[in-house]
Design a protein around this nucleic acid. Structure first.
Lengths: 149, 149
DNA sequence: TCAATCTTAATGCAATTGCATTGAAAACAG
DNA sequence: CTGTTTTCAATGCAATTGCATTAAGATTGA
């Protein structure tokens, strides 16, 4: 016989609701700014940034997937679109013909850079303006617990 | 002449990254559990719950939209699907023919209830297990600042 | 009053995402 | 080795989302 699971506490439910809501609001606002400035979505930015950080601007699709938490098939097609725009290129993975390396192009780096000027400003407006650095640190610490294992 | 906006601080950037990541991870896990149990997505749940809370189980589409932060056209079509499944019904809004009231059906209430048993358990597993009630309260308070105005 | 404006919800069509599967190549087990 | 299993990336097709617009009905203001 199983007990029914106890209800999550009110404070946990409230925190969860606000997490969803905060994410929707802030992402929505940032996406609106990016679009307004004629840029593609945050997903594109995420991929560009990861690649730029990777060794020689290269990562395997799996590595990107893990970093940004997209589905494999979605990433595959996002990379198609980005490759069409000349932002990344697919190159063979030495020693394993199943894999590939995605390399950011100069154009891709330039776009990431230009997007950051809008994105960073938006973060300032929608986050820095609302939280002190200390509070941001507390928030990070709490979210880290949520993320772990 | 405009100064370029100062970079967001490292702690703000870290907090933002973790907010995105935490949301993706937890939503992903919860959605997986719901799907696994044969239930529709969280979006459906959100709408059902809002309606259930509304006066006599009724809200206008606008009210739902504001509560759950969906786009107008997405909500319109989500309500189509939910109506097809017999979870809600559209009824005329007295005194304004543009508007309508969305009313949750008994079937809708039953589904919300059944989904909660899975959803609540998932919240316990993915949030309550990671945060004390006190921490959840702190998290709520910080996220509230982010959400406000 | 009534023309102009605004609000509400729906919809055609394009783009993206989800699901299931595939094909190719590598790793593994006997 | 060689057959089996696993990993990796792509893809056909369905469902959902995004964008732009529309139609209908209220509201406003001269």
């Amino acid at each position: 016989m199983q007990e029914p699971p106890p209800e999550p506490s009110a404070s946990v439910i409230r925190a969860w609701g606000r997490l969803i809501r905060a994410e929707r609001i802030v992402v929505g606002r940032i996406e609106a700014e990016l679009k307004n400035a004629g840029f593609p979505s945050l997903h594109w930015y995420d991929v560009l940034l990861e690649l730029k950080r990777g060794p020689e601007g290269r990562l395997t699709p799996r590595e990107i997937e893990e970093a940004v938490l997209f589905e494999q098939y979605n990433l595959s097609r996002l990379l198609d679109r980005m490759e069409n725009e000349g932002l990344v290129r697919r190159i063979p993975f030495p020693g394993d013909k199943r894999r590939q390396l995605i390399e950011i192009t100069e154009e891709g780096k330039a776009l990431q850079w230009r997007m950051w000027s809008v994105y960073g400003a938006a973060i300032n407006r929608f986050i820095s303006a609302k939280l002190t650095d200390k509070e941001a640190g507390q928030l990070s610490a709490l979210l880290l617990k949520l993320i772990q294992e």
